[in-house]
Design a protein around this nucleic acid. Sequence first.
DNA 1: ACCTACAAGTAGACCGGTCGGTCTACCGAA
DNA 2: TTCGGTAGACCGACCGGTCTACTTGTAGGT
Lengths: 196, 196
Amino acid sequence: MAQSTKERLLETGMALLLERGYHDLGIQALLEETGTPRGSFYHHFRSKEDFALEVIDRYMAEVHEGLDACLGDTAAPPTVRVRRFFELSGEKYRREGYLGCLLGGLGQELSGVNEVFRERIETCLSEIAGRIADCLEEARAQGEIPADSSPTEMANVLLNCWEGAALRSRLWRSPKPLTQVLDFYFGSVTAEGRVS
Amino acid sequence: MAQSTKERLLETGMALLLERGYHDLGIQALLEETGTPRGSFYHHFRSKEDFALEVIDRYMAEVHEGLDACLGDTAAPPTVRVRRFFELSGEKYRREGYLGCLLGGLGQELSGVNEVFRERIETCLSEIAGRIADCLEEARAQGEIPADSSPTEMANVLLNCWEGAALRSRLWRSPKPLTQVLDFYFGSVTAEGRVS
DNA sequence: ACCTACAAGTAGACCGGTCGGTCTACCGAA
DNA sequence: TTCGGTAGACCGACCGGTCTACTTGTAGGT
């Protein structure tokens, strides 16, 4: 068997959750899409909520892979590495038809109702922001950005703006908001306050 | 009667849609919350979808009121007026318990599944961006921002970043992402590239 | 080599509850 | 008497979740 039943459910589930959101995606639809009987689903997952949380785990694993690949490349200046990570994410969005970010989607939909999801997704985002902040701290140390910058704050602002652009890109079905926000952010971060 | 049944449904519905989202909010819950019989609801609205669209209309009416109040104040410089509009929105979010923006919430949840909502919400956002762009055009004409700026693009970037901050503020239940993004945006827009 | 025993996973009928929506009856003001 | 609006019983469809039966793969005893 090329792929286990559980993996198939998680992979297809990730795509369906991104497209349809949590409440609009029924177990039934997922089972039909993957040709899985009901019993198998509940053998592998305690509940729909448990399933979605595992999908998020899988999503985060992919994100960390992307972060490893981009931020670890010490040949490039830190701010360039950070930008590359977002450009890589934008590439992924394109392949998916510009449906935005799963964390943003589930976060918006569920954070008003379900505390478990709210905390989990917030944790994921601050984890990502943390790794970006580490890289921006390098940029600060190397003088690429002003010495009085706050890498943590800058990373969070960047990530939040990116999530907003991802939402707009989902509405617009276009990469434009994504590239615009990167141009704006890195344009101002790396040029701001420079004399000469 | 202080408030007609329809108004009561729309007002309460707006709050409930913001908190719970579209799919998680059942007609039943809305009826119980407002003490309305089922028949009244379907007398005033063709369907749940029609209801939500009217809620969006009502929301947009409020947004335009805010825009009128802030952008019309010609005593202040244009960029200050724009900032005031977002600060006013932030005040509103605070009163609601930092649940973010209704357009962002419904946009994320529904734009992958329902074309009607996707187009409507995208139209709303570009309408808002358009009014902000007009004000930024004034700023450009007055030399407050560089002459080679693109007000439309700047307005869209600002609005998108704001929506992202609103999402994070919803997850975080805090105003911090909102104030951070405004400080960053207006800090770089009004200071960028200035010599002396 | 063969039988047994057991567990992991597959299969789908079935459950109570809730969903959005319809329908008829009723009410009160013009 | 008409008509905008209220009232709530009722409908089929679908929801997430449970249950039992079956199929497999395999470890262990003889």
